[in-house]
Simulated scan of single mutants.
Amino acid sequence: MPITGTLSAEQRRSELTARVDAHGDVRIEEAARELGVSEMTIRRDLAALEAAGEMRRVRGGAVRASGPRPFDERRESGRAAKTRIAQKTRDLVPAAGTIAFDASTTVATLAGMLGPREDLTVLTNAIQTLSALVAVPGVTPLLLGGQPDPRTGSLVGPLACRSAGELFTELFVTSSGGVDPRAGASEASLEEAEVKRVLAARARRTVLCVDAGKLGVAALARSLDLEEVEVLVTDLDPADAALDPYRDLVEIL
């Protein structure tokens, strides 16, 4: 039965969570119709709930969460948006020097599209990203130490943080589970957030790459304050109104 009246974002998300708890899943088209909002609004709600670890998005809706999603599963989600972000970010990567890539699938997409460099060393805590970089002419990939997270495939933990803390880079390219003007960037995994904080602290510049569904989303663990970020790259046109809350905080690409 359709819900009458206007619900706040918090009320909608509570309703969506209740539906997933009760039925195991929720469908975007059905939820939009019954809650009286657009499908895009429901998609944004589901992205926020996924970043908070409440559920996991699937084609056409969402299902109960079971912790952070595996790398291969995340890689298939939002492929077009990740490609667009990678295309926009590619020109920010220098031809030479030392930089760092996080373990996100968005940045792994960038690694696969990077193209030849002159003499570039890239640190990463993702085996999949390392594999993509091995094939790029002029790039020397280095894998940080650490313990593999069986949920995500990322190398995390004290050893990953310690090795990241010993190395200084010119640029850190990262994604996040969500980004909010006040809360900053955040992750569903505490361990992943810790590694990103260290990598950002050792970089001269940080570029944050997120798709539109993560805007306004605050996940479990803070990874970066927006004052640490120089450029925000999304799949949206830079003039899109959805980016207005970020204009005074970061450069938008």
Rank of each mutant, 00 (worst) to 15 (best):
P150N: 04
S154P: 00
D180V: 05
E192I: 15
S176R: 01
V156N: 04
D180M: 03
G178M: 04
L190A: 14
L190Q: 10
T169K: 03
E170S: 11
L143G: 03
D149V: 03
G153E: 08
A164V: 01
L171K: 02
D149A: 05
S175Q: 12
P148T: 14
P150V: 15
L167K: 09
A193I: 10
G157Q: 09
L167A: 11
G153K: 08
L171P: 01
D180G: 01
V179F: 10
Q147A: 12
P148A: 15
D180I: 04
E191D: 12
E191Q: 08
A188V: 15
L159T: 13
A193Y: 04
E192D: 10
S163F: 09
V173F: 06
S176Y: 11
G178W: 07
L167W: 15
P181W: 10
E191I: 03
E192A: 11
S189L: 05
A183K: 10
P158A: 14
P150W: 10
G165W: 13
V195H: 01
F168Q: 13
S154V: 01
L171D: 00
L171A: 04
L142Y: 03
L142E: 02
T174F: 09
L144W: 02
L142A: 11
A188R: 11
P150S: 13
C161K: 10
D180K: 02
G177L: 01
S176H: 09
V156E: 09
P150M: 09
E170I: 07
Q147H: 13
E170L: 06
V195C: 00
V156P: 06
E170G: 12
G184H: 11
L159A: 12
P158T: 08
P141Q: 08
E194W: 08
A185I: 08
P141Y: 02
S175T: 13
E166W: 04
P148G: 03
P148N: 05
S189D: 14
S176L: 10
L142F: 05
L167G: 00
F168T: 05
R151N: 13
L159F: 13
L159Y: 09
G153V: 07
G146D: 08
L155S: 05
G165P: 03
A185Q: 07
L190H: 13
T169W: 07
R151W: 06
L190E: 14
R182H: 15
R182V: 15
V195W: 01
G157F: 08
R151Q: 13
G157I: 06
V179T: 14
R151F: 12
A160V: 06
L142P: 00
T169Q: 07
E170F: 00
P158Y: 12
A188I: 14
A164R: 03
G157V: 05
G146Y: 10
P141E: 10
G145W: 08
P158S: 12
E166L: 15
E166Y: 07
V156L: 11
P148Y: 07
C161I: 05
G157C: 06
S189C: 07
V179G: 02
L171W: 11
E192Q: 13
L190R: 13
A188F: 07
R151T: 07
F168M: 05
L155Y: 12
L143A: 09
P148D: 03
S189F: 07
E194V: 14
G178E: 02
T169F: 02
S154W: 12
